[in-house]
């Protein structure tokens, strides 16, 4: 059982969290033309890094999304950061 630090609730068991994708994947502006390749990259392409990874996670019990940096080999959590613009 791993533990992740939710920026709002503190350390909680991994069961309470859900992986929501890699950080920095910005949705293209679909009111403008978007190429097949750009849409594919947004929807499906991943870095899937071995080692340090910046990811978006959601703490399902408080429902807040946050950024977590962790190591996909050692499973060490490097840090988490909230994404609220007003408080960040």
């Amino acid at each position: 059982m791993q533990q992740f630090p939710c920026p709002f609730c503190g350390l909680r068991d991994e069961r309470e969290f859900h992986f929501s994708g890699e950080a920095g994947n910005i949705r293209p502006d679909t009111t403008q033309p978007v190429s097949d390749a750009d849409w594919r990259d947004y929807l499906y392409t991943h870095e899937n890094p071995k080692g340090v990874s910046r990811e978006i996670w959601v703490h399902t019990t408080c429902q807040e999304y946050f950024m977590m940096e962790r190591d996909t080999v050692t499973m060490a959590v490097i840090g988490t950061q909230q994404m609220r613009r007003d408080t960040a």
């Binding site: 791993q2 859900h18 992986f19 899937n48 080692g51 990874s53 990811e55 996909t72 080999v73």
Partner: peptide
Amino acid sequence: GLDRIPSYA
């Protein structure tokens, strides 16, 4: 099923 945490371990 899969462990739900991306992993290379």
